[in-house]
Design a protein around this nucleic acid. Structure first.
Lengths: 240, 240
DNA sequence: CACTTCATATAGCGTTGCTATAGGTGCTAG
DNA sequence: CTAGCACCTATAGCAACGCTATATGAAGTG
């Protein structure tokens, strides 16, 4: 169960820490576990990495390489905002496939101590958004857009990690992603509010839905379902 | 430096924990510090709260009361989306004035263990968004909108907490906030390319009706009818 | 008074991150 | 060849951690 004795202790420590971090079910990883798996004793760890956090930082640095590699892997599609979407998705995917590493990278927030990793991720995003800005596709300075989008991206990823596996719904991610990109992009036709009739109630909403349904040939309901649905709608909207 | 001996130990423990948590500069707070400040011994803590996390949960619960009180304090302005903005701002303000408490509440994420606090904050937001939905102001089901907005809200707050005080820029918050609200609100005609406007109005109306029905306990339909009705509504509103 | 129940204290277990000290190893200089 | 010098690693152990088995006191009830 130990590591190849040929490798230098520093490397063995890094691999052991990475492995334990990846397989730990959220419980903290002790230096004793790490040094035991690496086949070295405690002082070796502190000689090479200063302290536990130093070792984790080194692991994170390697993890970040992987993260950045993922972010850069896809060739620019010529559609910067589409690339931003892919960066978002890659960010979330990274967080969900390596939740413990991600939590060390982005989750271990301490007041007034901004992890360098955040700045790196931010500039990576900003780079792509600058292209979008050049193409006149966004209505916010790239730096601010990057900060904003990254914040939302981190928030969503943390939420998804915290969620039990069985009801993890990636729609939260895509929806938030598209909301953010939509909001900063210039391609949105503003104004032209469809119905600002206001003062909506059950009745008004029912009437609106009724009209809209009949006009749009929605195929979400079968015809028999639709018939009954409309009858109920009528009952609701003709009451009160 | 100790606490009023008249108070029951449970209260003293709570206050001591809250105080140490509030004044700690991010470093962890030990049970020994807490019990010493409270003037009790270890078993007392475990008798009342089970374990350290239990005590922290209790502190958080008190903090959450404060948080909720802040969220409810302002009278509804009659403009639900404006109230959502204020809830967002209140959330950020709470996080920045009590960063350590906030980090215990929202930052201490562990894989697959979703803090109850998140669900509470979510339903608080959802409640307000339902009003917006009834008024036909949003184009996404309230629950999904709440999840999405809260995720972004948490992400932004964590980012701001991590940022050094001197260059904390609240514009990140307002910008992200408005981006999210803008994206889910119907006051903007969404990108024409991806949208069939007829179908879109069906969705909006369905969402509004759904929210209205759940809010008003209409007795126009029997409970079994209502159940099926809502199921269809859900099918319609979650399509597109 | 006897008895139960709740609340607190004494003392200590096992584990944590970390280190003072010392010893071994491989290199270069004389 | 050997002496000296960095560099690296191990032995052993400290202080602090979360937590608990056990015992003692206080308060209420028959």
């Amino acid at each position: 169960m130990s590591f190849d004795d040929q490798l230098p202790p520093k490397t063995r420590l890094l691999r052991a820490a990475a492995e334990l971090l990846a397989n730990s079910d959220g419980s903290p990883v002790s230096t004793r576990q790490i040094t035991k798996l690496a086949g070295v004793t405690a002082p070796t760890l502190y000689h090479h990495f200063g302290d536990k956090e130093g070792l984790f930082d080194a692991v994170v640095a390697a993890g970040f390489e992987e993260y950045v590699a993922g972010e850069r892997d896809f060739a620019p599609s010529g559609e910067p905002l589409e690339d931003v979407r892919r960066m978002w998705d890659n960010h979330v995917r990274f967080g969900l496939t390596q939740p413990h590493l991600y939590l060390v990278m982005f989750g271990n927030i301490r007041p007034e101590s901004r992890p360098a990793i955040v700045a790196d991720a931010e500039s990576l995003l900003e780079e792509m958004l600058s292209k979008a800005a050049i193409a006149g596709q966004i209505n916010v300075p790239p730096r601010e857009a990057a900060r904003s989008i990254l914040a939302a991206n981190v928030g969503v990823t943390l939420m998804l990690i915290a969620e039990p596996l069985e009801d993890r719904n990636l729609e939260l991610s895509t929806m938030t992603r598209d909301s953010m990109i939509f909001a900063v992009s210039t391609e949105t036709a503003r104004g032209a509010a469809a119905d600002d009739s206001g003062k909506s109630s059950v009745v008004v909403a029912a009437i609106a839905l009724n009209a809209a349904l009949q006009a749009s040939h929605s195929d979400q309901l079968s015809s028999s379902e639709l018939k009954l649905f409309l009858e109920w709608l009528h009952r609701i909207s003709s009451s009160s």
